[in-house]
Design a protein around this nucleic acid. Structure first.
Lengths: 346, 346
DNA sequence: TGTCAACACGAAAACGTTTTCGTAAAAACA
DNA sequence: TGTTTTTACGAAAACGTTTTCGTGTTGACA
């Protein structure tokens, strides 16, 4: 087992100073060609690589990006990570992930763990609990310490930083309009409670689409699911809530759901009730994941372009990191959504 | 913007030495209670946290685990990451991820990036390309430099290190036996080419199950899909290959697939041919992801317990990291698979 | 009053780099 | 030969910690 070799060891071995070795390796003209070659050959032989930690300490840069997301077993978030990873690596950065598990405390702890010099900046999406409690002091503190943050998807106005979002309102309005223009007369929405910002916006898009079509909203057609429990029981209660929705509104002929899962479960319930998709009832979901693609029938859905969001977020962050001198100016990038038409709509 | 504060600054401010501050913060009895309180109050006021990088350099430990996986937009791998993250965090470690994208080069580069002091050890699953080329020098080098590696799922005998795997053979044998005991007479398998070790083992399990039931294998019933292209075209060619399988074997009444996707596509093809699931034909997949749970009909599947694999891998690695003195001894942990019965089987 | 512990603190080294500055020796020049 | 300029290298500081060792001051005791 040959341990990692250091400058000091090379220096001792070759009977020169550490400075000389360092300079020789970086091809400084200060060092004679003779010595340079000797040192480089030796370094190559022993597979020398500069110690990253020492470099980080010296440069006060880690070349590492901290990513905090609420959940990783989730198609959208993993796509975002892939996007972040891709541009980060291309630009010489590493990515270190923390999961908040939708918990405020874990979000805070994770950020503290990373903020102490381990990373140069954050990319994150806010946990549901944080959104609910509306306690954003940890973000503010981090930013005030000079560490840049880029938020994506679940963002919040109170914090001033770069943001990457989609136009949730427009995306859902488009989707609902599609249902209406396809002839649906009784369009229901399955959404989340309002404290999830994206849920709220998507609900609003639904309402605006109805208005455009001169239809008045019917509160019976709006199902706001409590999204706090993500466990198995949740699935069951979700299903029965949706059943209730159908029971109360026999004429539903279109459903817009604010995520894949709600849509899939919705289709399941509809099928159980003997409705044919898309002939009797049409469905559109949000977030283009595996479920949408491989459901039967495949689900028409609003794609959020998660990977693109990740790429953009990483670009924004790195840009900020590498031009710290620039005056503070935050941008909010809006990624276009796209309606991917499949077989759950006509 | 108040920048992060250091020991030196506290020392200057309070007019004591750096050593005193350091000791006071760690509650050393060397320092008078007076001074201790003063320093601690000041530190708290300015929200002092020791710089991680400096600690890493000093301790020659980063308390960080490097994870290299082929792909993150993948239910199994994200479950594993979640498992790793969970135990790592609990034990005070961070997790830094690298994606190989199934490419040999990216795997090597990613490992080099991390191996230079950024992390204490690796948890990884080998990329397909590496498996194909059978070039494992980067693993060997890393290990010989004293950096421990734990491999999971896609492992290889040539490398001596801790491993966490499932009993692919047993898992698939069980699954196929289930089909046979359910009365299937013509069980097909949709698997990968043999260079993917898990694919090979699962195929072998299929064969052994047949043998147990005194049935002779029929090479027409074995479809080995070339898994190299994961793109959209792949999906299409996959589907037509499976159609061909059904066309050549009209009597197929059971299908075992080595992953979710193959099973889902298989069901789709079967349905197109007018077969009823599970009455006319039964399906079992491998890997318990979202697709299995929410497909119609829901898919009976062999669960790999990805999260548990991640947890175990992290435990093994941390154990090794924290008892480096121990004599080298590698273990291979086998995680039990579980057949989750749903509606695609009788 | 002189000696010795106990106490409270500081100096310095170490982790592995990079970089600035200083300098001896060699080369160039007058 | 005497002076200046290169050339080629080394010493040391810095990044932020922790820790070992040394030391001045105080109080107790004979």
């Amino acid at each position: 087992m040959k341990k990692k070799i250091t400058l000091k060891q090379i220096a001792r071995e070759l009977d020169v100073s550490i400075s000389t070795v360092s300079k020789a390796l970086r091809n400084s003209i200060e060092i004679s060609e003779d010595t340079r070659e000797k040192v480089q050959a030796f370094a190559k032989l022993y597979n020398y690589r500069p110690n990253n930690i020492a470099l980080s300490l010296k440069n006060r840069k880690t070349k590492t990006i901290g990513v905090i997301i609420p959940e990783i077993v989730h198609h959208f978030f993993s796509k975002v990570i892939r996007g972040i990873e891709q541009v980060a690596n291309k630009r010489g950065y590493n990515v270190i992930v923390g999961l908040s598990n939708e918990s405020f405390d874990k979000e805070v702890i994770n950020m503290q763990m990373l903020a102490n010099g381990s990373i140069d900046g954050f990319i994150l999406s806010i946990s549901k609990e944080t959104l609910l409690q509306q306690d954003y002091h940890h973000f503010k503190e981090t930013i005030s310490q000079g560490m840049p943050i880029v938020m994506f998807d679940r963002v919040v106005n109170e914090i001033e930083c770069d943001k990457v979002i989609i136009d949730d309102l427009k995306g859902s309005k488009n989707a609902v309009s599609k249902l209406l223009s396809n002839g649906c007369k009784h369009v229901a929405i399955i959404t989340t409670k309002d404290y999830v910002s994206v849920g709220k916006l998507r609900t609003q898009g639904y309402l605006e689409a109805l208005e455009d079509y001169k239809m008045s909203p019917n509160s019976n057609l709006i199902l706001k699911v409590d999204d706090e429990l993500v466990s198995e029981d949740h699935l069951i209660s979700l299903e029965s809530e949706i059943e209730q929705l159908f029971l109360n509104n026999k004429k539903i002929d279109g459903v817009f759901a604010v995520n894949e899962l709600y849509a899939i479960i919705g289709m399941k319930v509809a099928r159980k009730r003997g409705l044919r998709i898309p002939d009797d009832i049409q469905f559109i979901g949000f977030t283009d994941g595996v479920l949408s693609k491989h459901a039967t029938p495949s689900l028409t859905t609003v794609s959020q372009h998660g990977q693109e969001m990740g790429e953009k977020a990483a670009e924004l962050l790195i840009e900020k990191l590498e031009h710290e001198d620039q005056e503070e100016q935050y941008q909010t990038v809006v990624i276009e959504t796209e309606l991917i038409e499949r077989n759950s709509t006509k």
